[in-house]
Amino acid sequence: MDRKKRLTKGDLINMFIRMNLQQASFNFERIHALGFCFNIIPAIKRLYNSPEDQKAALKRHLTFFNVTPACVGPVLGVTAAMEEAKANGAKIEESAISSIKIGMMGPFCGVGDPIFWGTLRPITAALGASIALTGSVLGPIIFFVLFNLARLAALWLGLFYGYKKGLDLVLNELKGNKLQKITEGASILGFFVMGALVSKWTVINIPVVISQITTADGSVITTTLQNIFDQLMPGLLGLGLTLLVCKLLKKRISPIMLIFMLFAVGIIGSALGILA
């Protein structure tokens, strides 16, 4: 196909910078609709000259859109490639562009949420926080640098790869199982580290005394309920509480409500001497 109108490297860099502001106009009506339009404006300006074409392009990118912000790159890249083909005279219906966009929303939320919110951020933040607890400013710096490097790389590579591959990406590559492999791998890493955090960083202590034995040499051995739980399995109570909260969240009890409920448990429990 004859490609007279092409996006320049500068357009792509402009779009890359704009992607960092993806959620600026987040609203409950159309979520990222305006954000996506904002991202693709450099492409629209480059590809369409007549006001009618520009207006049509702007309007078709002001429709509902929502994706994990770090994963907008490939969607924007593919959409820009389709707009480019359309501007060069290819027979692409408006509805085709919209449905590709909507079609990519689901898979990339499915990949982005577990990878960025379920794995990458908890792990880098936990690493940073554990260093920060010693008072070292290295903690926040490590978190900021690691998370943003990964996020910016995903935006940059996603945009360029999506633009270069265009529709091929949607028609061929996503049909394969590459995305599913990455998602499953990241989920395993996320689950594994989360299990370790539940054990290591949940502090519950039940100092209720079960038995007190005075040994022959006069020293007293006190066994509390907590000692028994720790002998069974360290962190068992934290695990039980985590699974209980999972159930309650599924019953649509809000996180902030659960936090206040746990506060109440802490206050009542420590007042009665059951928790310490």
Partner: peptide, 19 residues
């Protein structure tokens, strides 16, 4: 005391989000 185990709400949110 509660701040020792309030963290579990966050862990539970992550676990529930993972498909």
């Amino acid at each position: 005391v509660a701040s020792g185990f309030i963290v579990v709400v966050g862990y539970a949110m992550v676990i529930n989000m993972m498909g």
